[in-house]
Amino acid sequence: MREWSDDRVQGVIGTLLRWGVIFAALMVLAGGAMYLGSCGSTIPDYRVFRGEPPELRAVTGIVREAASLNPLGLIQFGLLLLIATPLARVAFSVVAFALQRDRTYVVVTLFVLAVVLFGLSREGSNTVVPPERFAPMCISSDAPPPSFHR
């Protein structure tokens, strides 16, 4: 097996980052085109902060919405892929440092990975997604404000 030199690790990291961004952007573009196709004429209102519905906050909800081809779910899934891109880079670095037998940096990268995962996993604990609820099709000012708040 070829040795995992720093140059080779950097090459893999570069490729990983590039494809992560391309894939995420295409997903967001597809969801965005679908959304504007069906909801383009609604009036958006971002002056008042209402927060997103739970279906579009938690990983489980987002994946379910995306699987049912809800345009908002698809965009949010693309954004999730984007957030996962640097995370995948850190995860790969853990493996690379382990192969280089660099214990100090295995610990360093594992710690960074844990911090980022903690940020993402909090959504599971503070947001319960009711299975029967689905995200709205269009976000507009005349939609009733959600009853939940942070």
Partner: peptide, 18 residues
């Protein structure tokens, strides 16, 4: 990505704006 995860779970990331 670390803070985006928190923002997402708080409902601060709106797909149509992002």
């Amino acid at each position: 990505a670390a803070s985006a995860g928190v923002y997402l779970s708080r409902g601060y990331i709106d797909p149509v704006l992002a």
